[in-house]
Computed example of a mutant assay.
Amino acid sequence: MFLKIDEELTLKVLEQEDAPALFALTDGSRHYLREWLPWVDGTEQIENTKSFIQFCQNQQASNNGFQTGIWFNGEIAGCIGYHAIDWSNQKTSIGYWLGENYQGNGIMTKSCKRLVEYAFKELDLNRVEIRCGVGNLKSKAIPEKLGFRQEGHIREAEWLYDHYIDHLVYGLLRRDWTG
């Protein structure tokens, strides 16, 4: 799967050949990513990245969503994808992260917008959710810019190394999507 967004930005399903670049990006942003992502400490070896890519390929093969690399000017800048797809209820949730050096370029807003559009137009889903840490201002700005509604606050939703963090839940329905 390949989704071109503009001249600088493309979403591409991860393949094993992407493992070295994805590992280098993760490793180079490890301290930065660790603030909000609980899986960072489990990715110290390139084999972990290869296993993640295999998981992503299995997810896509089972028609349960997909993960893409975000390619900015030919370099991998982060990842975005659907956690899973609930086909019976026509909904999904989007997860994303961006390497520290790629922040502030509008990359994630454009990428997320494209996946929302794909969910509604190509997959015929009715609902998309995004959850993020309450204090993660950069992450929560994305659904707010794209017209999602804040629908909830989940207390102690995720264990982050040595403490729990609360999550905000954002939702968007197909009928509310303006593109």
Score class of each variant (00 low, 15 high):
residue 177 W to F: 15
residue 110 K to V: 07
residue 21 A to Q: 11
residue 63 N to F: 12
residue 107 I to N: 09
residue 79 C to T: 10
residue 49 T to Q: 11
residue 128 V to W: 15
residue 19 A to H: 06
residue 168 L to Q: 12
residue 24 A to G: 04
residue 166 D to N: 07
residue 150 Q to Y: 09
residue 60 Q to R: 12
residue 126 N to A: 00
residue 156 E to M: 09
residue 79 C to F: 07
residue 142 I to V: 11
residue 24 A to E: 13
residue 145 K to F: 10
residue 98 L to R: 00
residue 30 R to K: 14
residue 164 Y to K: 02
residue 47 E to I: 02
residue 167 H to R: 05
residue 43 T to H: 15
residue 67 Q to Y: 11
residue 137 L to I: 08
residue 41 D to A: 09
residue 128 V to Q: 10
residue 162 D to G: 04
residue 31 H to S: 08
residue 86 D to E: 02
residue 36 W to T: 02
residue 5 I to A: 00
residue 101 N to F: 12
residue 135 G to P: 07
residue 69 G to I: 06
residue 89 N to F: 11
residue 150 Q to D: 05
residue 23 F to P: 08
residue 156 E to D: 13
residue 167 H to W: 13
residue 61 A to N: 13
residue 4 K to R: 03
residue 5 I to E: 03
residue 76 I to A: 04
residue 79 C to V: 13
residue 179 G to Y: 08
residue 34 R to V: 02
residue 118 Y to I: 05
residue 109 T to E: 13
residue 44 E to V: 07
residue 29 S to A: 15
residue 45 Q to E: 13
residue 118 Y to R: 04
residue 11 L to E: 00
residue 19 A to L: 01
residue 55 F to E: 03
residue 13 V to N: 12
residue 61 A to L: 12
residue 38 P to T: 06
residue 143 P to C: 05
residue 119 A to E: 15
residue 175 R to M: 09
residue 117 E to N: 05
residue 151 E to Q: 11
residue 109 T to L: 02
residue 141 A to P: 05
residue 102 Y to H: 12
residue 18 D to N: 09
residue 15 E to T: 09
residue 44 E to C: 10
residue 3 L to I: 01
residue 21 A to C: 04
residue 69 G to M: 01
residue 156 E to T: 04
residue 58 N to Q: 14
residue 126 N to S: 00
residue 43 T to G: 04
residue 37 L to H: 02
residue 64 N to Y: 13
residue 141 A to Y: 15
residue 146 L to C: 10
residue 28 G to V: 08
residue 59 Q to R: 15
residue 151 E to P: 03
residue 6 D to C: 01
residue 177 W to N: 04
residue 44 E to Y: 14
residue 116 V to A: 07
residue 65 G to I: 06
residue 57 Q to S: 09
residue 96 Y to H: 09
residue 46 I to K: 09
residue 48 N to D: 15
residue 157 A to G: 14
residue 77 A to P: 05
residue 166 D to F: 05
residue 102 Y to I: 03
residue 8 E to W: 04
residue 58 N to A: 13
residue 105 N to T: 01
residue 132 C to F: 15
residue 118 Y to A: 01
residue 57 Q to C: 08
residue 169 V to F: 10
residue 162 D to C: 00
residue 69 G to T: 03
residue 63 N to R: 14
residue 95 G to L: 06
residue 17 E to D: 12
residue 116 V to F: 10
residue 92 T to D: 03
residue 166 D to T: 04
residue 150 Q to I: 05
residue 48 N to K: 03
residue 19 A to W: 01
residue 26 T to H: 07
residue 17 E to I: 10
residue 153 H to A: 06
residue 82 Y to H: 05
residue 37 L to P: 03
residue 53 I to H: 15
residue 170 Y to M: 11
residue 51 S to M: 13
residue 32 Y to S: 02
residue 50 K to D: 00
residue 30 R to M: 06
residue 76 I to Q: 05
residue 78 G to R: 02
residue 19 A to M: 07
residue 138 K to M: 01
residue 9 L to M: 05
residue 44 E to I: 04
residue 89 N to Q: 13
residue 9 L to Q: 01
